[in-house]
Amino acid sequence: MSSLLKVDNLESYIGLFTILHDVNLEINKGEAVALLGRNGAGKTTFLKTLMNLVDTRSGSIELNGKSLVGIPTHKIAKMGIGYVPEDYGVFDALTIEENLKVAMWKEDKETLERLDYVLELFPDLKIAYKRMAKTLSGGQRQMLSISRALVNKNQILLIDEPSKGLAPVVIEKLAHALKEISQNTTVLLVEQNFAMACAVADKFFIISEGRTVESGSIKDLMKDKELQHKHLGVV
């Protein structure tokens, strides 16, 4: 297997504060990886750093061997990274259709096929296709945001806490959809909800105070109650 995303000794900062101190991780093509850790450990900042929405101080980020450090956000996205932010980043003043259209790099046959695919995956969106996004519920917003990242031919999806603030039923639905997505695409999932992470991912990294401290197979983590307790606060 070849490494798709490789991050070494990454340090990033917001204003005067260094948020990430030393993050190292490697994701191979086709993997579904969960990035775990307590609140404020730097998980969201890590995704933002990948997208160059937060400044990198030192270290390297490589996608297929090409450095992402210092490259404008829109170019990083075009290199094949789909980003689903914590707050969904849905455009309220646009309809669902327009939200998806804005995201499309081109409107060729393949893209339209992917569009059909996501609409099948999330029938909710199909029903509300012409409605303004501001009328959507939290779960539907999450679906829209994920769909937006899927309409393009991306190499990896970065998904930030999809389960946050959603009802258990919706989480279950999402977990199911994400599992399916991860069959075809490399996924990096940031999660607090351990059950969700277990349902989707097969590998994990744990971030604590801006450093990657543990990694391994998610099956091992499920067995290791002590590690869970130490870094995730799950009992």
């Binding site: 996205a77 075009k78 327009e98």
Partner: peptide, 24 residues
């Protein structure tokens, strides 16, 4: 038009427009 869509989207979330691969 798509230009209009991008402008309307950008009024609300310029960072997200960038993150979708658009040079705003």
């Amino acid at each position: 038009t798509k230009i209009g869509m991008i402008v309307r989207a950008g009024v609300q979330r310029p960072d997200m427009v960038r993150a979708l691969g658009i040079n705003i």
